[in-house]
Simulated scan of single mutants.
Amino acid sequence: MNSHVHKTLVVQLQAGATERFPVLAHLGYDAADPFALTVVFGHDGRVLARWALDREMVAEGLERAVGVGDVRLRPASRGRWDELRMEFLGDPRVDGERHHAVVYAWAPAIAAFLRETYAVVPRGEEEVRVDDFLAEVIGS
């Protein structure tokens, strides 16, 4: 059984007061870290940002607003398109504000990716192997 899931999507990035523009989002899931999803945003062969997201939070973000820190998710609608709005707060800028970006992804594509991850590790059956983690920490 494959313990990894990968999907590449075209999403819409809005940074600051700019219009939306398309970028690639490379989504990843590894059963070795069953609670996390990774997303790498790229454009023209360059990595714009990397984030680790909570899988359950992403699932909930398709239904309702979630998040209070650096990542906030909520459903959004644009005409006939159902989207997942992902807001990211980054490192501080020189003016004291923080970098800020909003990414819009087609919600059915995110839901399909989540279903693929649930086929690897079903929702609610994630497991933390504390003994393995402690052995790794002590061994380093």
Rank of each mutant, 00 (worst) to 15 (best):
G139Q: 04
V23M: 14
A52E: 10
Y118K: 04
P22E: 11
D131C: 05
S140K: 08
L9N: 08
A112G: 10
F88W: 10
I138M: 05
F88I: 14
L13I: 04
F35T: 13
V128N: 01
F35P: 06
H99C: 12
Y118E: 14
W51M: 14
L89M: 15
A25V: 09
I110D: 07
H43F: 01
E56P: 00
A25R: 02
E60L: 10
R115A: 15
F21S: 12
F133M: 08
G139K: 09
T8L: 05
Y104P: 00
V5C: 01
V128Q: 01
T8H: 01
L84G: 08
E136Q: 06
D70C: 08
V11W: 09
R129K: 11
D44Q: 12
T18I: 01
R72V: 15
L84V: 07
V103H: 02
A76P: 03
P34F: 02
E97Q: 04
R46C: 06
E19K: 02
D91H: 06
F21G: 12
G61D: 10
L9E: 10
R80G: 05
Y104D: 10
V102E: 15
I138S: 04
F21Q: 04
R74F: 02
L24M: 09
E83Q: 15
F21V: 06
A49T: 06
V94N: 11
G139S: 10
L89R: 09
V40A: 12
M86F: 04
A59Q: 09
V130F: 09
Y118M: 01
V10Y: 03
E127R: 07
T8D: 11
A49G: 09
G90C: 02
R93D: 13
V23P: 07
R85K: 08
V40D: 09
T8S: 08
E126K: 03
